[in-house]
Design a protein around this nucleic acid. Structure first.
Lengths: 240, 240
DNA sequence: GTAGATGATGCGGGTTCCCGCAAGACGCGC
DNA sequence: GCGCGTCTTGCGGGAACCCGCATCATCTAC
């Protein structure tokens, strides 16, 4: 068995290396990549079917890298190993997992034992292993309750990118009014109105900008999600 | 000599511990804190005059912690040790350094040697040590050229928080029109107009929201800056 | 098949944003 | 003092945003 480690922090990388060797005696080769681009390349060259992947790397983040790896070989098993369980990350990962693929999501704060167990479960048993905390995010995200539907998330992205209502309408094939409807839903769910209208008529928020801020503070959105959305937007702009 | 390490990642923490011991044989005690809050407390209890501080921690980030530590003992020497040189971080640190304090800013990507050298320079010689890359940011930030003045940065924060023009005017003691003037400056500097007006009259951006996005993508703004700004805003809202 | 829920769309109008234009205010050099 | 640049402020208007109200299509339940 070969395992590819994609992780930009040298300390974490060597820790992972050790953990992999300890947990998987049947693994004869461990390869290391220090960013997403290298990770993609090495995965291709070595046809690695087993990857441990950091999210949040400088050059090319883990979600991007995983997406291209899975596109080339959908049966690759990937364990995401991340510091955070931001909804933006969890949602980002969920969106790219191929049907039936074995993958995992373990936080860096997890114990040695948990990490090793996850390594065996995913790489040997082909099971999915999701940290409890992450799992919580995921359900909040998928279930309607308290969470956000895909359309709501979509429009959140669009205003975060700074598109006008009209541009959103064209991009999503909607009428102007429908866009504004969805915006209202979003404002409602994000509770933008809370502090907006004090007894004073003034001291208000700009709903659109405020919504984005609240989403960032709640980690519904983060830098990496913005980055991805921005490049998708650039793609779309070229086509239209 | 005592040294206090404030760093949430256990791997990095033990690495730092080792580096400190190796670089500073005269240091007889090393204390560790795993978040900002603990860091503040330990600094107070131990009257530590030497601190190595991570930025970007969950509970309470490094800038917050450093601010309260310096408020209590302005002669504390702090070495910031961070993954990133985002302009938002650099600006955040610059704003809280007391006059004449010895401090440093070293990236985690720096070599062992650089780190140890910095430790000695700051803690023993009371010099300021700023990584070259960080230094670049700093000058870009302070010098007018290509960088942002304080007023521009202020208004960027305000729209990022989602305030209306009127609210900004009241907060900064300006007229409505002045706020809008500054916004125009900001849009100009951020180059928001670039893709905004293609030959088509449509497909435009909402300047206000777009400006925030661009600032985030350029790391002029980041999560931690937003977080701080938000709590300052909450403070101000109480007063008014 | 009928009733109710959900979502898309159009219309109208109140508010906010964006900004050109022009008049003062302040500082700086000479 | 005079001129010049920078910053602030007011006015006005066109565009964009926010949203209540009403209509229509689709879908689900019974």
């Amino acid at each position: 068995m070969k395992v590819l480690i994609v992780e930009d922090d040298p300390l974490h990388r060597s820790y992972l290396h050790e953990a992999v060797s300890a947990a998987l005696p049947e693994c004869e080769t461990v390869i290391e990549a220090e960013n997403g681009t290298m990770g993609e390349k090495l995965a291709r060259d070595h046809r690695s079917a087993h990857v441990v992947m950091d999210l949040q790397m400088n050059n090319r983040n883990g979600i991007e890298a995983a997406r291209t790896i899975w596109k080339e070989r959908p049966d690759t098993r990937i364990l995401f190993w991340s510091n955070y369980s931001d909804e933006a990350y969890v949602r980002g990962v969920s969106r790219i997992v191929p049907d039936g693929a074995a993958y995992g999501y373990v936080l860096k704060s997890a114990s040695d034992e948990r990490l090793k167990l996850a390594l065996r479960s995913i790489f040997v048993e082909a099971q999915c292993v999701i940290d409890r905390e992450v799992r919580g995010m995921q359900q909040k995200s998928l279930g309607q309750t308290r969470g956000f539907s895909d359309t709501e998330y979509e429009i959140l992205i669009d205003i975060a990118l700074g598109l006008t209502d009209r541009a959103i309408a064209r991009r999503r094939n909607l009428s102007l009014r429908s866009v504004q409807n969805r915006l209202q839903q979003l404002y409602e769910k994000l509770d933008v109105y809370q502090t907006a209208s004090d007894d004073h008529e003034d001291s208000r928020f700009n709903l659109r900008a405020r919504a984005v801020t609240i989403a960032m503070l709640r980690k519904l959105l983060n830098y990496s999600a913005l980055e991805r959305a921005e490049s998708e937007l650039a793609e779309w702009l070229k086509v239209v």
